Amino acid sequence: MKEFVVYTAMRIALFLASFGIVVGIMALLFDGTYNLLLAIILAFLVSGIASYFLLDRQRAAFAERVEARAARAAAAFDERKAREDAD
């Protein structure tokens, strides 16, 4: 669960930073005005691309955790199935 919280928090922080940068650049280029929808879309794109490179380690840790949990669930299911077959 910790890996999920860390990865999600870092994604949110990266989006907010990207949004601030995009709004700042748009405000500088367009005399203090900006289109909110366009700024959000651009921030999603920028943060998505940046997270692919910057958050690789956190994403791998989260994936390992999910894989281990899935393996435990599959083993428990197989054990219950084997007990049911034995009965």
Results as ranks from 00 to 15, higher is better:
48 G>E: 13
65 R>P: 03
47 S>H: 05
27 A>R: 10
45 L>C: 08
6 V>A: 07
13 A>I: 09
52 Y>K: 12
70 A>R: 15
13 A>N: 07
7 Y>W: 08
14 L>Y: 03
79 E>W: 08
87 D>F: 02
62 F>D: 02
3 E>D: 07
38 L>G: 10
38 L>N: 11
70 A>P: 01
41 I>E: 01
21 I>M: 13
14 L>T: 08
19 F>S: 00
25 I>A: 07
62 F>S: 06
73 A>F: 13
66 V>F: 08
45 L>N: 01
25 I>V: 15
40 I>E: 06
79 E>P: 00
69 R>H: 10
68 A>G: 14
32 G>E: 14
78 D>Y: 04
6 V>L: 09
70 A>Q: 12
65 R>K: 12
34 Y>S: 06
39 A>I: 03
39 A>Y: 05
2 K>W: 12
29 L>M: 14
60 A>G: 04
41 I>A: 12
71 A>T: 03
79 E>Y: 11
86 A>H: 14
66 V>P: 00
53 F>I: 12
41 I>F: 14
51 S>L: 08
18 S>N: 07
79 E>V: 02
2 K>H: 03
4 F>W: 05
58 Q>S: 05
11 R>N: 15
87 D>T: 03
19 F>G: 00
40 I>G: 01
80 R>C: 08
61 A>I: 01
69 R>V: 04
3 E>C: 02
55 L>C: 01
76 A>K: 06
42 L>P: 00
